[in-house]
Design a binder for these strands. Structure first.
Lengths: 179, 179
DNA sequence: TAAGATAATCAACACAGTGTTAAAAAATAG
DNA sequence: CTATTTTTTAACACTGTGTTGATTATCTTA
């Protein structure tokens, strides 16, 4: 009733085509016309499901975020699951993260991590106060920056090693901060 | 011979119009037509100086980077001058940093800072080795992230305070790392 | 300040992509 | 199989693009 095979197929090929095109050229230069040609979908059909390229990208983003949130809820945010998920969706993550138009992606990831970090350190004398915000800016930016660079370089070390060194870095930062 | 007042004027109003428009809408939605209307410059004239919107943005970027490099060379990169410059060019910096198409901006800033940090710590046992790259990823991302957030929030504290806390944070990270 | 050089404007052009229609064809669910 | 839903097709007006040649305005410098 709510999911016709044809609709599923159309949305799938359009999503794949966009990600594929994003690896070839910047988002700004991707036209709806070529997107549909690549997907072998009629241009009119595109407008049935999406308003424009950005709308499509937004839906891809929403699915990714949802996947991450599910990981965080179930099993209390296992780090290894999280990095695995990110690595497996590398192309989409990199595209989305550095894309201004759908800027909310970076912000949503950042705030997910920020909340996690705040929880992690609340028993170490780091209260949720305004003057500590900059510490979290620093931690979040540092961890995300390292992760993105790791993805960009095609994951030169395995997940566990990355997690280990990141943990050492941010725990170290916090230790110094409370001195 | 190489600088006609008319050219200077045209380029100036086009630059200003772009920055102004970037504060109203995303880059992708800015047309050459409206850019020229805003600047009161004939559309044909735009094409004499630039290929497209991105070309214009690139030139704005190049000037900003050049200004930063000049600051670093003269007077050995005074931090206060640097943050002052960034703050005074806030609008352009924020636009450029989070814009993918001219993605080199973020990378150029990052590598400027990375080189500076490497120089700063070379007498502390942190060698320029591959295994230390992630430390610099972390430092650079953290410092830049804090600075951008500071700019976004309209500089809630003055330059010196920001410099002071950032210095404490990254020096702390390094101390922990060498342990 | 006058003359020649250079730059900006104007109007027109073919062309690309957009967003929307209505009717025909194809695929699906029950 | 049949009624329903989706996709395709072809056409439409519209907006922005990139380029042109002729005209007007402004600048440089002698």
């Amino acid at each position: 009733m709510k999911s016709d095979r044809r609709v599923k197929y159309t949305k799938m090929v359009l999503r794949n085509s966009l990600i594929q095109l994003l690896n070839e050229k910047p988002f700004e230069k991707i036209t709806i016309k070529e997107l549909c040609q690549r997907a072998d979908v009629n241009r009119g059909t595109f407008y049935v499901h999406y308003n424009d390229q950005e709308d499509l990208l937004q839906q891809i983003q929403d699915e990714l975020i949802e996947g991450m949130q599910n990981l965080c809820e179930k099993g209390g945010c296992k780090k290894s699951d999280w990095f695995k998920y990110v690595r497996e969706n590398k192309d989409a993550v990199l595209c989305l993260y550095s894309h201004k138009a759908t800027k909310s992606f970076a912000e949503r990831i950042n705030s997910l991590l920020r909340e996690y970090l705040k929880l992690s350190v609340k028993d170490r004398g780091i209260k949720n106060e305004g003057k500590n915000e900059i510490l979290f800016d620093y931690l979040v930016s540092g961890i995300v920056g390292c992760t993105l660079h790791w993805l960009t370089r095609d994951c030169p070390c395995d997940d566990e090693q990355l997690i280990c060194i990141l943990e050492r870095l941010w725990q170290g930062t916090v230790s110094e901060f409370v001195k």
